[in-house]
Write a protein that binds this DNA or RNA. Structure first.
Length: 214
DNA sequence: AAAACGGGGGC
DNA sequence: GCCCCAGTTTT
């Protein structure tokens, strides 16, 4: 299949650029909370907030006992902090009431938590549990479509299609490296195609070239 | 399918 | 000042 060859080519390039990820399992609860905080927010901001909040609270019990104001003040610079603080508190209570204080390790149950969509749920699976999963954010979605690995407007379909054509062991790093690639080279606007090592396999670059030649 | 949620950083 | 950002929920 042509897409599979293309995926291999892209993966080889990403590995050359960024090396290999050491898949290190993290605390699923920490992954859950920090990923929730990272929604629509730059990761420098998120990392600082995660560090602050976990220096005070660590377990779902501690989070659910905290007041909303305390949580809000700790995560403040993060976007949507009001909503996110509320959801963190709700999630913590739900984990205690329905999941024995443990973060579930399957996507169906993760998706029942407030503020947890497919991207966040898949982050918990792959970064928290070492379970192969592909979190699709705007970067992964945009890059996959530009390259022509998938052709869809819906991130969910990108996830399904890309999961089908990428080797399973590559799912561990695909998200992380595509995000880096997306911030540094394949940017939303003004992508640096002149610096891109896979432009010859890229549908987007091809289209630009054609429209320039005319 | 589109709007709403939102403060902070880059320019 | 304006635009954008590791999405999800609601309309």
């Amino acid at each position: 299949m042509r897409e599979k060859e293309k995926v291999k080519f892209i993966l080889k390039f990403l590995h050359k650029l960024y090396g290999y990820s050491n898949k290190k399992k993290n605390n699923p609860f920490l992954v859950l909370i920090s990923t929730l905080l990272s929604q629509r927010t730059r990761d420098e901001t998120t990392d600082a907030a995660t560090e602050r909040i976990f220096s005070v609270y660590n377990t779902p019990k501690e989070f659910s006992d905290a007041t909303l104001e305390e949580l809000e003040n700790l995560i403040k610079p993060v976007g949507f902090y009001h909503v996110k603080a509320k959801r963190i508190k709700q999630i913590s209570s739900i984990l205690i009431d329905r999941f024995n204080g443990i973060v579930p390790d399957n996507i169906e149950e993760l998706l029942t938590l407030p503020g947890v969509g497919r991207k966040t749920a898949n982050c918990v699976l792959v970064f928290g549990f070492d379970i192969p999963a592909l979190p699709v954010d705007t970067h992964v979605h945009r890059i996959s479509n530009r390259l022509g690995l998938v052709k869809t407007k819906e991130p969910y379909k990108t996830e399904i299609e890309l999961t089908k054509i990428a080797p399973i062991e590559e799912l561990y790093f695909l998200n992380t490296f595509m995000v880096k690639f997306g911030r540094e080279i394949c940017k939303p606007i003004g992508p640096r195609c002149y610096d891109c090592g896979v432009r010859d396999a890229c549908d987007y670059f091809e289209r630009q070239k054609i429209s320039r030649d005319r």
